[in-house]
Design a binder for these strands. Structure first.
Lengths: 346, 346
DNA sequence: GGATAAATTGCATTCGAAGTCAAAAATGTT
DNA sequence: AACATTTTTGACTTCGAATGCAATTTATCC
């Protein structure tokens, strides 16, 4: 009772202090609302005197333009959606994307598909918020991709490309990167037997990386490669190593992991739980070039994705398409950078 | 030339396919716009027949309500801003927050202060987007905090509390956690000399953790504690260890790190670059309980923040205040959980 | 100085959905 | 069947800023 009463009073108090609108400013400055509006539009026709008068009033009243109202009439929300399957995997990417969008005066609505939330439900939300474009670092079905076209919302995939669908994407040359890693392993002349820890079977990226590795090994005449799958997580790397050894009876000379996280798990399982030396007994390579890869504990040989270039490309590709809906889809592929490490023996 | 021409054509084509509005649906269904609107408002007075008719039309036309327009009239954007100083530090937190907000039909506008972007410029953006509330996991000045009050935008701090300011916050008991860690160290009876690697001097959290450690050590009669500072990053942990040894001439029995990341750096510097054994020669403890802390490479003794409870608390506290502006500020403090590890000797 | 061109300003309308209120329809009562 | 009640429905206005257009002011030129 008392609680309700007091809160109501405060609410009323709050509602007296309504938002300052452009009309309020106009009144205060003795000009028209249009004039106020124009003062916030770069390159609009406003005299110096007018601008001064308005800006003074703006300061005095603490006016901030309402981006929601603006978005309604301009049909430009200046918001983009970033859809990530799991934030934990590549925080740097989201961080970089966000920074680059912010530079351009664009804001990021974040959507994660972590807890297996329904993709279609997420897209529903995306449409409702009238975002100007979408960056997707998650898997979407062809049907879902088609709705972007229907709704005229530009879409750029990050780090996944759909070869047979006309959709823009920025990605890393998975195959080339993986080949470079295998080169590194074969060139040392120390590795005869190989095993691969792949990502989940529905991951296109994992498939590409695996294909790159298998093909390259094949070219070297190595065809008997143990292959087990993980889920990109540390623990699954550990489990995968157990599985490999169980399958083969002994450890291979080298283990190729579809990403760094699983490589860490693999290294730790080998070193701390199975008493193998890395790289003495087993060499390990990863993929991605996350921060921890260069930590002394791991010093993992990996392929670093050029995150800066890739995010910049994704952002500019998206914004170009926001500005000109007519631009055709484009797929940009960046080469990864081989980073050597002491997780591979020479 | 050709390019411009073709793009213009496509643009026109696009603009013919305008958004489907509630009015379009109404026309198609032969009802009023209000009726359509009501069908999307839970608990509104709509007959079964009407709802059916409208929903059929909605499906046929692929209508999606415009959240921007709705927000304008309802003065509820159903968006909150999450301001993070650096996404790389706690991706789980952002991820959890996002998931919990999504559950409640609220969307997250992400703001990072990574590249030392101006806080005031960021806040300016926040105001423009009419967010219903803000979660801040970053430092704000008292003046900046005051503007939230002025603008009637609920604010909840995550993992930082301002003792002398009436503002809501969710945080972890830094002092208690640190004391638990020191208990662990002293109880083993193996540690006489201590060093502390603090966070940046402007970090309140670091100050609290450091204070907790110093006070607790003091109570045990240990007053000569070497203290150096880092920036919460891996590299700074490594550098700090060098500094400590330079200052003391030798390594201490235990190094207390203000967070896990620096503890990893410290451990690696000790083990791989200075030939000290961890924990044989030096014990190391961290704070936060990030994923990597439990990796076998580190197995770091640390205090885990109850991220789930904390994010849930932050979200519900914020939304409560969005629903009832009258609620007074509240500070909730959660206890961390001591996680032992083999980075400390017994 | 007067005519014309150019820049500036204000009026009125628009964006899309929601809420108010009164009219209309459905329901209940005797 | 006549009336009172309740439920549904639609016309109209509102939110806050942007913009086309006409009106006004200012600048330019001979």
């Amino acid at each position: 009772m008392a609680k309700t009463g007091s809160s109501t009073r405060k609410e009323n108090l709050a509602s007296t202090k309504r938002h300052v609108t452009s009309y309020d400013v106009a009144l205060h400055a003795g000009v028209s609302q249009s004039a106020v509006s124009r003062c916030f539009k770069p390159g609009a026709s406003v005299s110096k005197k007018m601008r001064e008068r308005v800006m003074t009033a703006v300061k005095e009243m603490g006016y901030t333009p309402n981006a929601i109202a603006r978005g309604l009439i301009t049909r430009r929300s200046n918001m983009v959606a970033v859809i990530v399957s799991n934030l934990n995997f590549y925080p740097e990417v989201v961080s970089e994307l966000n920074a680059r969008f912010t530079e351009r005066g664009v804001h990021v609505l974040l959507f994660t598909l972590d807890h297996e939330s329904d993709v279609s439900r997420t897209l529903e939300q995306v449409w409702q918020y009238q975002v100007d474009g979408v960056i997707a670092a998650a898997h979407l079905s062809p049907d879902e991709i088609a709705t972007f076209e229907e709704r005229n919302v530009p879409l750029v995939f990050y780090n996944r490309s759909y070869e047979d669908i006309a959709v823009s994407s920025v990605s890393c040359d998975q195959v080339g990167g993986e080949r470079a890693l295998i080169n590194r392993l074969t060139e040392s002349g120390q590795h005869e037997s190989y095993a691969i820890i792949t990502g989940p079977s529905d991951s296109v990226v994992s498939m590409q990386r695996t294909r790159g590795a298998i093909d390259r090994l094949d070219e070297s005449g190595i065809t008997d490669v143990t292959q087990v799958s993980g889920d990109y997580g540390y623990k699954s790397g550990r489990r995968a190593v157990q599985e490999i050894i169980e399958l083969r009876g002994s450890a291979p000379d080298a283990i190729i992991c579809a990403n760094d996280m699983m490589a860490f798990g693999a290294m730790d399982e080998l070193r701390f739980h199975l008493e193998y030396d890395v790289p003495g007994d087993v060499s390990v390579v990863g993929f991605d070039g996350v921060r921890a890869a260069s930590w002394s504990s791991f010093d993992l040989a990996t392929v670093a994705q050029p995150v800066e270039s890739m995010t910049e490309a994704a952002v500019s590709m998206l914004m170009d398409r926001v500005d000109d809906q007519g631009l055709p889809p484009e797929k940009r592929v960046f080469s990864g950078v081989l980073r050597d490490g002491s997780s591979v023996r020479n």
